[in-house]
Amino acid sequence: MFQKIRWGALLFSILLIAGCKTYYSPAGAPAPRLIQINDQLGSDTAIVNYLAPYKARLDKEMNVVIGETVTDLTRQYTAHETTMGNFFSDALLSIGQELDPAVQISFATKGGIRADVPKGPMTVSNMFEVMPFENYVVVLTITGSQFLKMLDHIVRAGGQPVAGMTLTLTNTTCEDVMVQGKPFDPSKNYTIVTYDYLADGGDGVEYFRNPVKFEKYNLLMRDGLINYVKAKTAKGEKINVHIDNRIKDARK
């Protein structure tokens, strides 16, 4: 009898330990759970109140309408020319020529333009989405051979956002390159506007290193875009960008 109780107690202890062990699985075998928390958990009122003045200032600055576009400004990575690319590069050319009248062309890359803007009112927020990075406007004077490398890049990418120049893409190269209406001359230097990320070699643009002349302006690309749209609006103009065949596609 006594023996039985002892065995019982032992069994009880084993079960107690076993019970714990079953539940407390060892390290390395976590029991994961996915808990979705919906609105019912609510918001921390203190945080909401704390945020309110920041949010008010943000909304006040971001929701400001600065102009209007009559067409959808869209991007397409595989396209040789897009409305957003043309808007961006036209604005960049205008910004550059205002800073330095010697500027002949603008150059950007498809990957750096980060959002579309549908036709209708344009807000500051739209410009932040299009250009979220803190990139500064740069004016470069480059040699004809550097220009040729830029053309190679445009060919490889199947077109890049440019303004102030026209060209025709062929399967392996490009033809009919015109800069400000004059045929491109590889023996000449050219003055271009871009932004520091590209001028410093970002996005595969290694050919702008060691330019003839380099001038970085204390103007954010994004602020340049905002100023450009505002200036149009002040003149009673809307953004009216179309595919204008500045880059023709003769690839087969």
Partner: peptide
Amino acid sequence: LDYVFNKAKGKKQRKESRVITIG
């Protein structure tokens, strides 16, 4: 991630994880 430690042994016994989606 919820961990339970057996203090006496200084040894981790179990952990349990959840991902909480804020939505």
